[in-house]
Design a protein around this nucleic acid. Structure first.
Length: 292
DNA sequence: AACCAGGGAAGAT
DNA sequence: ATCTTCCATGGT
């Protein structure tokens, strides 16, 4: 039973069905592509809320219905959803920008691909560490085990464990889930830093790209790839292209008809034209090598 | 059965 | 500073 509903009309273009298809890769996300909705877990000051977002329009005329039974936090939750899906951003401007670059055909084919943020900064960081160097299938399996074992579920919607909870775990608790020793250390040690307030992700997310990368890569287990992915998917920044990412390299190899994957230096060079929207280039490149 | 996967740290030049 | 090796496990 939903206590309130809110309608949202979004400027430009927005391919919500693609967003849903991506979310459905993640077994932890409760979504229905046929009925075009997803239920978002939102933690606000220790309270767990669930917000349902449902598509009402189409890519060229995006409209949405937002619903929740958390009556007291309505305005805050609506704002949260807008930031999550980045509805205030007009994707037709970004589309125009890329029509003057070599990626024009990809943007024509995949119109309205938005940067959608992960549900929480901490969740994103943990997920990104867990996903390091693993194929997507096993990466999602491992993340699911982590959340289903130590997180919390409410009305069928999964919430990641808090940093405080993960900080109290032993490395062996994660090894039992088939984490490597290293990965177990990275996840738990980073959570301890956060729980002890030596790292504050909310404050960090306000700083410049360069400051974030410099600070966060000081943490053992977090390199440049993880920092860039956190900025892109966690914070929702516009201008990141993880040049070391194997998926980006493969996509560029195919798009440019090469026989070898381009390396980091070459990728940085060719991506200059894509700035200040390199995150959107990343998204369509990843999208270009998806099956279906 | 080898090689790869949406890397990163530690050791070796 | 930059290059190489090892970590750890599932997928193809």
């Amino acid at each position: 039973m939903k206590m309130w509903k809110e309608h949202a009309a979004v400027k430009g273009m927005y391919d919500f069905d693609y967003v849903l298809s991506r979310m459905c890769f993640d077994p932890l996300i409760k979504a229905d592509r046929g009925e075009r909705w997803v239920e978002i877990p939102v933690r606000l000051e220790d309270e767990k809320h669930i917000v349902r977002v449902q598509a009402a329009g189409d890519t060229q005329n995006p409209e949405f219905l937002i619903q929740s039974d958390s009556l007291d936090q309505k305005e805050l939750l609506i704002d949260y959803i807008y930031q999550l899906f980045q509805w205030e951003k007009d994707l037709s401007i970004i589309y125009s920008h890329f029509q003057q670059t070599d990626l024009a055909p990809l943007f024509k084919k995949h119109q309205g691909t938005p940067v959608v943020r992960d549900f929480h900064l901490y969740d994103c960081l943990m997920k990104t560490i867990i996903h390091q160097q693993l194929n997507m299938k096993f990466a999602y399996t491992l993340t699911s085990r982590f959340v289903e074992r130590f997180g919390e579920q409410k009305d069928g919607v999964w919430f990641y464990p808090t940093p405080e909870k993960v900080a109290r775990l032993q490395y062996d608790d994660l090894r039992k889930l088939q984490f490597s020793q290293r990965k177990a250390e990275y996840v738990i040690d980073t959570s301890r830093l956060i729980a002890d307030n030596e790292i504050n992700l909310d404050e960090l997310s306000e700083k410049t790209d360069e400051e974030v990368i410099q600070e966060i890569t000081k943490i053992r287990g977090i390199g440049v790839w993880t920092a860039e992915n956190w900025l892109l998917f966690g914070v929702g920044r516009d201008d990141f292209l993880p040049a070391a990412d194997i998926g980006i390299q493969n996509a560029l190899k195919i798009f440019m008809n090469r026989d070898k994957k381009p390396q980091k230096e070459e990728i940085y060079e060719m991506s200059k034209d894509w700035s200040p929207y390199r995150s959107y280039a990343s998204l369509v490149l990843w999208r270009s090598i998806e099956k279906n």
